[in-house]
Structures are given as C-alpha cells and as structure tokens.
Amino acid sequence: MFLNHFEYFAPKTSRETLELVSRLGNKAKILAGGTDLMVLMKAKAISPEYLIDINGVEEFKGIVCEEGKGAVIGANTKLAEIQFSEELKAKYPALAYAAGEVGSSQVRHMASLGGNTCNASPAADTPIPLVALGTKVVINSLSGERELLLEDFIQNVRKTNLAEGEMLTNFILPEPVPQSACRYTYMGRRDAMEIDIVNMAVNIELETDGETIKNVKLVMGSVYPRPLVSKEVPPLLIGQKLSEALIEKAAEAAQGEAKPIDDIRASAEYRREIVKVLARRLLKETYDAAKGV
C-alpha cells in the first residue's frame, strides 16, 4: 500500500498557502488530517501530484467563541478539540457531540472540521449539526474572500462549491437565539468506528411562551447525496405546540423526503424506517431541551 509519488509543500502562512493553491490548481490536494485523503491515495482512488500540508499554518486553527457573538472555528481545527471544548459543549452541544462520535480517538486527533466538510461524504457526522445551526463557511483565494451557507456549499457526493484556487478557511456559527436548542443523533451498526446509516440534527426555537414552535430545522444525513434540509417539517410544526400526533406526522414527512440508497451498510428500506425513528426521538429531545426541561 504505497502512495503515489507527489511533491510535498508545508506553507507557514495563509498567504503562502493560497499562492500554492492558486499556482498548483487541481493537480494539488490540501492535506489537513489526511484521514480521508491518505486512505483514498492508498487505495489509488486519487493520485495528486502535489500535497499542500496546512498543519503548519496557525491561522487555520482555533476556536473563537465569544459571549453573544456565536463562534468562529478554523477549518483545520481538530475534531478532538471541538469534542473537548468546554465553550462549544455549552453553546453548541450538538456539534461537540457529533465531533466526538467521528471514527476513533486517533482519527479525531488527526481529522479536521474542514476536512469533514470538504470531503463531502453523505454520511459525514459534523456537517449535519453545522447545517442545522445555520453555519456559514468562509472561502478564500488569492483574489479575496466569500461566504456561503454550508447547506449550499456541499453539493453532491464528494462535490463542493470550491472553485480551482479556492480553499475553506473558517466556519461561522451564529449565536443561538434564546429559547432554542439543537441536538444531533445517529444510527450505526455498532457504536464505535462506524459509518452512519442515518444521522440527523434538529434545531428548534420557541416563542416567548416557551411552548409554541417559532422555527424548526431538521437536517438528515446518509439519505441523500448531500445534507438534506427538510422542507415539509417546518410548515407542520411552526406555530404549534409539539404533541405525540404532530411528532408522528413530522417524522412521516421527513421519512417521505429521504431518498436513501441500498449499500453495504444498510438497505434503503431500513434507512427510511430509521429516519422515522430518529426524527421521532430527536424532535422530542430537542423540544424538551428548548423548553429547558
């Protein structure tokens, strides 16, 4: 299992990195944790001519989480840091939890949040809560910077909105509104080291009465080529107080939207069934969390 021959670059600043990304274009791959890239290269699925290792660039790392100002997370922040960050656990428990469920301890110490998104696997853990939280990504190139909602950034299996010469540099998470909660859950064959069969995040905001749903976002993974934001669940629940009957209706709506495939991990039929199960559990859990019970 040798890797192909490539030339290795280790820039120290974001400017140097962007110059390399611009100059080497599609012949190069960015190396963050390498937990996707190295596996693909070993399998000879891809053979880049150049690798641009961004681990020496401090600007791409770190969590800035200020009171009232949401959070900014550098693309090359390791998942283990997100898993253990007290600030993120308090403000964005769904994200910290999802980061802690990726692969293994070793994988999480290597893997980055940016890599998890840029790899654009439909089964990836962290993009699902990030989308539910309304996260934006910051994309940089030599010619400047642009921002995009994460749900528009991931486009298809292994396909993102990145153009040649661009890279992902930051995630911007909005400050959670009062009386809201976001939660994440998944189902796999076993607990550890398992690629999810279905994963899901729900974000619920309540009216000032603390019971009526003002806003809801339900996001599903592993059931569509990219994170799937439910269109049918919000009109069913907004303006309502959550009841068993409504949970059932919403779960069925989510199930109807999911377009899973058969693969080695599960059948499409089983996945659709699980969507309903997870939606039921997670709507209830998130609603209760938003109410503060």
């Binding site: 299992m1 290795y8 280790a10 190396l31 390498g34 937990t35 190295m38 596996v39 070993k42 690798l51 290792d53 681990n55 283990a80 692969g103 293994s104 301890s105 070793q106 994988v107 110490h109 290597m110 080291m193």
Partner: peptide, 27 residues
C-alpha cells in the same frame, strides 16, 4: 490494516494519539 481502522500503529505525536499508517513522515 494500514487504513486507520485497527489502531495497531498508534503513536503519540506531541502527546496526542495518532495513526502512523496515515501520517507522512515528512510532516
């Protein structure tokens, strides 16, 4: 396994457990 799945190659890098089978020496 050489693919990140088994953990037999675990070493500490700056004190953190990482997989030597997915890590470039030059890095």
């Amino acid at each position: 396994c050489g693919e990140g799945d088994c953990g037999a190659c675990t070493v500490l890098i700056d004190g953190k457990p990482e997989l030597a089978c997915l890590k470039l020496a030059i890095a």
